[in-house]
């Protein structure tokens, strides 16, 4: 079983539209995993019917018992995250380290587990989808990504499917690392803008750091053909395979509005995505 992750560094380059199309191409052979738990959008195209919901508990956070607290100030003094104000814990700042509990002489602090989101196993017209929602403002998105990936992997194994297709998140930090680690292949979607080029370089460094094989495709390549050429040269220089180019195509948004994968329409972007998919499958 192979795990393919689609990431981008820069946000909004078209990861989700591409993964939805890949899901249609792989129909019935892949478990799809939406690991962009901060902004999960794959469900908009895939219309999942939820079969199973699991609770996600992020980090335990401190809670101060007003009755017991003597307001000695030890917790405030030792908290390095400025999470305690007026002897109340600001849950959005608390990192769950438990130092306040450690230094409290009145036994007034407890670490409390709380629900931070849900993970789901659903059916879609292209096969099973594992997805999640993280409550806005919660921490530990990386931990939720790991949960989604684990559910998708074991589902693929039990269904004897060839593949897990992962929609990743933008950036290079914890949720990206969680969606990348242990993948067989990372497809990086970039765009020919100064930001796209800068972010591509960084995300390729991340893939290299974790020793994940990476391939690159350029979306909306014709917005700036000169920059697209430069991206290809840079990829060649790094020994990274360029797997395809997708033209700027407003039908991609029409497909989104109609809740269908782009490849279901006959349009220039759809042709390119299908080509990329077949190259991807061959190279596995």
């Amino acid at each position: 079983m192979k795990q393919i992750v689609v990431i981008s560094g820069k946000g909004g380059t078209g990861k989700t539209s591409i993964v939805a199309s890949f899901a249609a191409c792989a129909s019935g052979r892949a478990v799809i995993a939406d690991c962009d738990v901060d902004a999960p959008d794959l469900h908009i195209i895939l219309n999942p019917v939820v079969r199973e919901r699991r609770d996600f508990f992020g980090i335990r956070k401190a809670s101060i018992d007003k009755e017991r607290c003597t307001e000695c100030g030890a917790c405030v003094e030792h908290c390095r995250f400025d999470a305690i104000k007026n002897f109340e814990v600001d849950p959005s700042a608390c990192e769950g380290c438990g130092v306040c509990m450690l230094v409290c002489v009145s036994d007034a602090v407890k670490m409390v587990e709380h629900l931070s989101g849900h993970a789901y196993i659903s059916d879609t017209r292209y096969g099973p989808l594992v997805h999640a929602d993280l409550f806005p403002g919660e921490e530990a998105s990386g931990k939720l990504v790991t949960m989604v990936r684990e559910m998708a992997r074991s589902l693929a194994e039990s269904l004897k499917m060839d593949m897990v297709l992962i929609d990743g998140s933008p950036g290079t930090g914890c949720p990206v690392i969680a969606s990348l680690s242990g993948a067989d292949l990372a497809l990086i979607v970039t765009e020919p803008t100064v930001s796209g080029v800068h972010d591509l370089d960084r995300i390729l460094d991340v893939a290299e750091h974790f020793r994940i094989r990476a391939m690159v495709c350029i979306n909306k390549y014709d917005i700036n053909e000169e920059t697209s050429e430069n991206i290809e040269l840079a990829c060649n220089g790094r020994g990274v395979e360029m797997i395809g180019r997708i033209p700027f195509d407003t039908n991609v948004i029409d497909a989104m509005v109609r809740s269908v994968p782009v490849v279901e329409l006959s349009t220039p972007a759809a042709c390119s995505i299908k080509q990329i998919w077949s190259r991807l499958v061959t190279s596995l």
Binding site: G11, D38, A39, A93, L134, P136, G137, P170, G171
Partner: peptide, 14 residues
């Protein structure tokens, strides 16, 4: 700010 609605976005808008 960074995209998203978890730690890094929260820290940035705080």
């Amino acid at each position: 700010c960074p995209p998203g609605v978890s730690c890094s976005a929260v820290e940035s808008v705080r």
